[in-house]
Design a binder for these strands. Structure first.
Length: 103
DNA sequence: CACGTGACCGATT
DNA sequence: AAATCGGCCACGT
C-alpha cells in the first residue's frame, strides 16, 4: 500500500484493518491514508461502497464518537456495532476512551 | 476550467 | 457543553 494507490483504495485497506470490537474516526482514517484533512472524503468513499462489500465500514464514527448516519442507516450501524460487543447509546454515542482503536 | 456538494474537523464563541 | 464558522479536498457536472 503506497502513494500509487488511489485514495479510495487506501481508505479500503485501512478500514479493512480495523479490529472487530473497536472503532476509529474519519479523520484518523484520513491521516493514515496520507490526506490528513480529507475526513469528509473518507465518508464519501464509505458511502459508495459496492453492494455486498464485507468492509467493516460501521467501525468508523466521527470525532465525537457519534455515528454520523441518520435514521434507518444509524440503526443499522448501531446494530452492527452492538453485535460485536461495542456499547452504543440509542442516539449512536460510543465511548471512544473504551473502544477507540489503538495501533 | 469553475462550481457545488458533503457518513468531517479544529478553533472559537 | 453545545453551537457556529471557516477551511478542506476528492468527485461529479
Amino acid at each position: 500500500m503506497d502513494q500509487h494507490d488511489s485514495f479510495p483504495q487506501r481508505v479500503w485497506q485501512i478500514v479493512a484493518s480495523i479490529p472487530e470490537g473497536t472503532v476509529t474516526t474519519y479523520g484518523e482514517v484520513a491521516r493514515m491514508a496520507g490526506s490528513p484533512r480529507a475526513a469528509r472524503q473518507v465518508g464519501g468513499v464509505l458511502k459508495r461502497l459496492p453492494e455486498g462489500s464485507t468492509l467493516p465500514w460501521h467501525r468508523v464514527v466521527n470525532r465525537q464518537g457519534v455515528i454520523s448516519l441518520t435514521g434507518p442507516d444509524l440503526q443499522r450501524q448501531r446494530q452492527a456495532l452492538l453485535s460485536e460487543g461495542v456499547i452504543v447509546s440509542g442516539k449512536g454515542e460510543i465511548d471512544l476512551g473504551t473502544y477507540r482503536w489503538r495501533y
